[in-house]
């Protein structure tokens, strides 16, 4: 067998390892959220195929909810675009923070552009947690296996559950709604290796709800860019002081 074939085999393996991530807890939680989206889409008057197209084409649950909401409200295409795009600005730093860890110097940009479509909160957390355990040359394939499978699976789930599940019992629905945030809290904290990430975590948790009261339209952006910058500056100050005290010691 040639060396090339062996590499190919390794890649296929990593693709399958990535695919298996679809059976992880966060992926299963996300699937229940998409069952919820399917019920919401039906209620809003979307057809089954429209709900599936939205899941495949947007692949960001908040943006999908906003688009359905603005369609319901009869907003025109420009207003809908504006509402959705404002909620999606957060994608830029999320993708930008994953790309340097995922690519090799040889990874073509078009592959990264294509794979960026599959980055949303769940896959961002998955990438931030697991990429470091995958050999660098296989990371793109590993993420492709997870991201593409997760998106396709949820599109299928939206298609199948459309019209079947109208509502969970309140107690179950309440627990499901709570699963997503508490999973993010513990998994992001557990995967935070750098101090700057922990600082940003704490500041984001505090600023998010606070800014929602002050500026509901831009709360997440302000909390993210402002809070992230504060965390970065605190961390830089901390590192400088440490460096200085080490020099003088």
């Amino acid at each position: 067998m040639s060396a090339e074939q062996r590499i190919e085999r390794g890649s296929l393996n990593w693709f399958l390892v990535g695919m298996r991530g679809v059976l992880s807890l966060p992926a299963l939680i996300l699937m229940t959220s998409y069952v919820g989206f399917s019920a919401f889409a039906l209620e809003a008057g979307l057809s089954r195929s429209e709900a599936v197209a939205m899941t495949l084409g947007i692949w960001a649950l908040p943006a999908q909810m906003i688009l359905v909401g603005s369609m319901l409200g009869g907003a025109n295409i420009a207003a809908s675009f504006l509402a959705v795009t404002l909620s999606s600005i957060r994608m830029m730093p999320m993708v930008a923070s994953i790309v340097p860890e995922m690519r090799t110097p040889k990874t073509p940009v078009w592959i990264l552009l294509f794979l960026s479509h599959f980055i949303a909160i769940t896959s961002w957390v998955f990438a931030a947690t697991h990429l470091r355990d995958v050999p660098r040359q296989h990371r793109v394939v590993f993420f492709a296996g997870f991201g593409m499978t997760l998106t396709l699976t949820n599109a299928v789930i939206v298609g199948i559950s459309y019209g079947i599940v109208s509502q969970f019992p309140p107690m179950v629905a309440g627990a499901l709604f709570m699963l997503t945030p508490v999973y993010f809290v513990s998994s992001i904290w557990a995967s935070a290796k750098q101090v700057v990430v922990k600082l940003a975590f704490v500041i984001g948790v505090v600023l998010g709800p606070l800014m929602a009261l002050v500026s509901p339209q831009f709360d997440v952006l302000i909390a993210g860019i402002g809070g992230g910058t504060i965390a970065y500056l605190i961390d830089r100050y901390r590192r400088r002081r440490k460096a200085v005290s080490q020099e003088s010691a």
């Binding site: 750098q194 940003a200 984001g204 600023l207 709360d219 993210g224 992230g228 965390a231």
Partner: peptide, 13 residues
């Protein structure tokens, strides 16, 4: 990284 983490945690909170 700090901005992305703060963003995601703001959404989460």
């Amino acid at each position: 990284r700090a901005v992305a983490t703060a963003l995601v945690m703001a959404v989460t909170a």
